[in-house]
Amino acid sequence: MTGTHFEFALGLGDDALIAAQRLGEWTSRAPEMEEDIALANIALDQLGAARLLLTYAGELEGAGRDEDALAYLRDDRQFRNCLLVELPNGDFAVTMAKLFFLSAYQLPLYAALAGCADERLAAIGAKARKESAYHLDHAALWVKRLGDGTEESHRRMQAAVDEVWPYVHELFAADPAAPVDPATLRADFDATVADVLDEATLTRPADGWAPGGGRAGVHTEHLSFLLAEMQVLHRAHPGARW
């Protein structure tokens, strides 16, 4: 029971942490100044949720690991995030496709968590669902703007959706013992995606290739580089306070 909760909290915490790390890479590089602020805002929300989830995961584990021990002192094979969040940012369309699919999954997830029996997870879900609703609005608006904008933006947005789509299936792998079984979120996700893609004049790719493995610690080649950068300073000064 506790083992399952630990793995579950760790997986969601890692999703949020790696998403925050990728979004933070946009700082000072966004297409417009207002968007720079918005992306930093979303990165901060993800980082905030990650800290709550990782802190709780550490407590469930009971081995004395805090948020920083979990974030900075694990190797890529010990990370439990989905592959979607670790994919490189690509152009702005790829980033928005990633954020759109992630938040269309996180919103029903956190909403369901808010009603679960575990009080700590319920509190985190209640807080994070409001943030996810904003992330979803923001990403959906950009998917529509880019999809139904210019010829070039339509081409790029469709290419981004096609590129990222295979990675969404992993998010909904059934786990009946978890506080929220991800498989139960799929219908909600599919409805959101259908509405937005339709309005954006974009086509939902056919299902086929469905890469996975993130929840078991088998990642893409990208994660190790991301972690090398994120962890370099912390690991260079073992035991130091910051």
Binding site: A20, T27, L44, R51, Y72
Partner: peptide, 18 residues
């Protein structure tokens, strides 16, 4: 931002640059 040595410092720095 990407290399901040703790999650707390990362959050503070992100907010500052924002």
């Amino acid at each position: 931002i990407s290399r901040a040595p703790s999650l707390k410092r990362k959050a503070i720095l992100l907010a500052k640059v924002q």
